[in-house]
């Protein structure tokens, strides 16, 4: 990853880690769903698309995505200058990094517990 992208991913990531709670559901399978659901819709929103949500859970992801997209636009004005492809690539990188920190690279031993 080039330095600029890396730096931008860290900025976006840092915001999530400090301000959000949705990435920290207790089990790995939920974290994966949450991260994908919310970041997926965030990318859509940042690209001007209208996410479709079929379930109540999708709608709940959308709520967090709307807030996140708003904050990103306000706090990181450079995001408004990016093309849709650039945004999607950026969020993809962010998603990978978030999955790593909260799931695949996480030291939390309870993520794989079978029951809630």
């Amino acid at each position: 990853m080039e330095d600029l992208t890396k730096d931008r991913v860290e900025q976006l990531l840092n915001y999530i880690m400090k301000k959000c709670l949705w990435q920290f559901n207790s089990r790995a399978w939920d974290r994966r769903k949450q991260n994908a659901g919310i970041l997926g819709q965030t990318a859509q929103l940042l690209c001007g698309e209208t996410p479709v949500h079929e379930t109540a859970n999708d709608k709940c992801y959308w709520v967090d995505a709307v807030l996140l997209a708003r904050e990103y636009r306000a706090r990181f004005p450079w995001i408004n200058e990016l093309s849709h492809d650039e945004i999607k690539a950026l969020i993809k990188a962010l998603h990978e990094r978030l999955d790593f920190l909260t799931i695949d690279g996480s030291l939390n031993e309870e993520l794989t517990v079978q029951h809630y």
């Binding site: 559901n25 207790s26 939920d30 379930t55 109540a56 859970n57 709940c60 809630y116």
Partner: peptide
């Protein structure tokens, strides 16, 4: 307080499809 009560939210999400929204 997700520490003391996330279990019931997770179960309500799994069993009844009610979303869980964590707030402060």
């Amino acid at each position: 307080c997700a520490r003391s009560a996330e279990y019931i939210c997770d179960e309500l999400r799994a069993r009844y499809g009610i979303p869980r929204l964590d707030i402060d």
